[in-house]
Design a protein around this nucleic acid. Structure first.
Lengths: 340, 340
DNA sequence: TCATGGATTGGGAGCGCTCCCGATTTGTGG
DNA sequence: CCACAAATCGGGAGCGCTCCCAATCCATGA
C-alpha cells in the first residue's frame, strides 16, 4: 500500500552530479554555513536539474526531529469546530509558525481510538510538539503527552491547578471589568450567559461576573445565569430563558460574541432596545462583534498574542526537553462600542 | 531544535529482551502472519515491559510509506473554514479512514509560501496521498501534485474538463429536480441564490436551475439570480436584493442550507410567508435544515458517501501508483420538508 | 525411522539523511 | 617562500525499521 514513486533522486545522486561530497549537499539544503559560494551554486544547480526533494523520513530518522507540530482538537461535538474562535486561533498559530519552517498539522481526536492513534503518531516522533485546544476538565490527553515527555502547550487550562504548560487569557479579570462597566452605566439587574461549565474558561468568566457584582454591592442570584455552548442559537435560547425569569434585566454579559449575537436577536424578538433597555457585552472581540446591530461592546482576547505565546512556549520546551512547565496569562481588554 | 527523548527503546532492544530476532518483532508489531502464538505473546510482553513505540520515521524510510494522508484546505478566506460543510466532510473522511490505520492531517494553504511548504512536505514523503477540498477554478495545486505523481483526490472539480481524480455530487441534477419540484408546486417566478461562481459546483447548480426553468417553459432572467458566498449573511442580503428586483418571486433555490437560512430571515423581515407566499429550497441537507422555521426542503448531498468514495479512490490510486484518474459523481436527492 | 515440505525464525542489506571528524585547500603574516 | 590557522570538504558511522532469503524447526506419512 502506498509505495513512493521509485527513482526519486537522492542526496547522494545530487552530490555525484555536482561532483561534491554528501556532506556538502547536506550543508547546502540546510542552509548551513561553511560552503564556498561557488560550490553552493553548483550544488543548487544540480538540485534544480535533478528536481531533488529531500526525503523527510530519512531526515527525521537521522536528525531526530520532525519539523512539524500538531494542533489537536479534542471535541467530540463537531459543531464547536465550526466556531470562529477556532479559525482565528488556527490563523494566528499559522502566522506565528511561518518563519520557523515547521508544518502545522491539525488533528482531530473524537474518540478513544483516535486518541490512541494520535498518541502513537506523536510518540512515534512524527511531530516535535503538540498544541491542544479546547481541553475539557476531564481530558486525559495532556497527561498522556506529558508522560511521554512530549513538549505540549494547552490553550486554556483544565483547572486552577493545571501543571502542563498553557497560555490563557485573564478570563476572570475580563468578565469583572465588563460587569463593572455595566454597573457604571447604571445597570442594576445584570445577568450572564455562561459557556459550557466543564470548560474552566467558562467557570472563570462566571467567577469574574460574580466578583464584580459583589464588589458593586449587587446580589447575584443563580437564576441570573444561564448556560450556553458558545453557539448563537444557544445564546438566543439562554437569553429568552433569562428574560422569562427576570423581565427586569437591564444588563447581560455573554460568554462569547457569537452567544451575544444570539442574545441580541432574542432581545429584539422580545421588543427590548439595546442598549437603552438592556446593555449587552460579548467576549472575544471577533470581527462578528462589529457586524451586529448595534455593534457589540466586548472583552477582547488577544488571539494573535495567544498564538505567538503558545508557539514560543512550545519552542522553548522543545529546546530544553520538556523539563519544566510554563504558564502565561494574557491580559484582556474591554472594547466599548454601541451595545452598552 | 527538538531532539527526541533519548533512550526510547528500539525494536532491536525489544528483540533482545524477548530473545528473538528483529524480524520476528517486526512481524508482531505489524500483525503479520507466520509467528507462533507463544512467540507472539512473548514479544508483546517485551513490548509492554519496555514501553516500546515504533519510530515512524524509520518505518517510513524503510517501508517507503507514511501511513498518513493530508486533507488540504486552500482557502485564503478563513470564514469558509467555519462553515458546516467543512466539518461534515472532515467527519466523514475521518470515519472512512478509521479502519485503514492511517492518520488524517488537515493542512491549511493560505498563501504561496504555504503552498510551497506543503508541496515540499508532501513530496518529501510525509503523506501517501492528498485530499483537496474547495478547489477554485484557478488553483494550481492539483496540477502540481499530479506532476509530482502524488495520489490526489479532489472534492468537486475545477471545471468540466477536470482530469485529476475527483468525487463530486450531481449538482446539475440536484438543482434541476429542486426547481422542477417548485414548478410542480405551482411556482412561476423562481429565483436562485447562487454560490460563488468561481466554484464549478456553484456554476453547475445555476445550470441545473436554468435547465429546469427552460424545461418548464419559464423564462429565466439574469436578474433572478444573485450570488452569495455560502454564508447565512450573504444569503440574507441576496434574498433582499432579489425581492427588491422582483417583488413577485414565489420560489427560491438557494446555494446551500446556510444560505437558505439567511434567505428565510430576509423573507420573514419582508413579511412573506414560507411556503405560502414564497417556497424555499436549500442545498446540502445539513442538520441545520431541520432546525429552521419552517424546516427546509433541500437537496441532499450524500456527505458520508462522498467521504467514503474519496478515500476509496485515494487508496486505489496509492495502490497502483497514480497512473490513471478516476471520477465519481454521486446522485443527489430531494428531501421535501415544510418550506415548499 | 527418515525423508519431505510447510511453518517459523534470524539477521544481512539497505532506505536516504545528518553528524562529525579527519583531510584538504586556502589564506595570512613573517 | 614557508609555517600555521582558518575555511572547506569528503565520507564513515550510524538513525531504527522493513524486506527478504537462507536457515532451522516441526509434523507427517511412507
Amino acid at each position: 500500500m502506498g509505495r513512493r514513486r521509485p527513482g526519486a533522486p537522492t542526496l547522494e545522486e545530487v552530490a555525484a552530479h555536482a561532483r561534491v561530497g554528501r556532506g556538502t549537499v547536506s550543508r547546502v539544503i540546510n542552509n548551513a554555513a561553511g560552503v564556498k559560494d561557488s560550490t553552493r551554486r553548483a550544488v543548487q544547480q544540480a538540485i534544480e536539474e535533478l528536481g531533488y526533494v529531500p526525503n523527510l523520513a530519512a531526515r527525521s530518522l537521522a536528525g531526530r526531529r520532525a519539523d512539524a507540530v500538531a494542533l489537536v482538537m479534542t471535541e467530540p461535538d463537531w459543531r464547536q469546530f465550526a466556531e470562529p474562535f477556532f479559525s482565528e486561533i488556527v490563523n494566528s498559530l499559522g502566522n506565528a509558525l511561518t518563519d520557523t519552517g515547521m508544518q502545522l498539522l491539525l488533528t482531530l481526536v473524537r474518540s478513544d481510538t483516535e486518541r490512541q492513534r494520535f498518541l502513537e503518531y506523536a510518540r512515534g516522533g512524527r511531530v516535535d510538539g503538540v498544541l491542544l485546544m479546547s481541553v475539557h476538565a476531564d481530558d486525559p490527553l495532556p497527561d498522556m503527552l506529558a508522560e511521554a515527555r512530549l513538549p505540549t502547550v494547552l490553550l486554556g487550562r483544565r483547572s486552577g491547578e493545571e501543571y502542563v504548560s498553557y497560555v490563557d487569557a485573564d478570563n476572570i479579570g475580563g468578565a469583572r471589568s465588563a460587569v463593572s462597566h455595566l454597573v457604571q452605566r447604571g445597570r442594576r439587574v445584570i445577568a450572564t450567559i455562561t459557556g459550557p461549565l466543564d470548560l474552566y474558561a467558562a467557570q472563570c468568566r462566571l467567577r469574574g461576573y460574580e466578583e464584580a457584582l459583589k464588589l458593586a454591592g449587587l446580589k447575584g442570584e443563580p437564576t441570573l445565569a444561564a448556560e450556553s455552548d458558545f453557539t448563537a442559537d444557544s445564546g438566543r435560547r439562554a437569553m429568552a430563558e433569562l428574560l422569562d425569569r427576570h423581565p427586569d434585566i437591564d444588563g447581560v454579559l455573554a460568554a462569547s460574541d457569537t452567544t451575544a449575537a444570539g442574545a441580541l436577536e432574542a432581545l429584539r424578538a422580545a421588543g427590548r432596545r439595546v442598549p437603552e433597555d438592556v446593555a449587552v457585552i460579548g467576549f472575544d472581540d471577533f470581527p462578528l462583534a462589529q457586524q451586529t446591530e448595534p455593534r457589540l461592546t466586548t472583552v477582547r482576547q488577544p488571539i494573535e498574542e495567544i498564538g505567538r505565546a503558545m508557539i514560543r512556549l512550545l519552542l522553548e520546551e522543545m529546546e530544553e526537553g520538556a523539563v519544566a512547565w510554563r504558564h502565561v496569562i494574557l491580559r484582556t481588554e474591554l472594547v466599548v462600542r454601541d451595545s452598552t
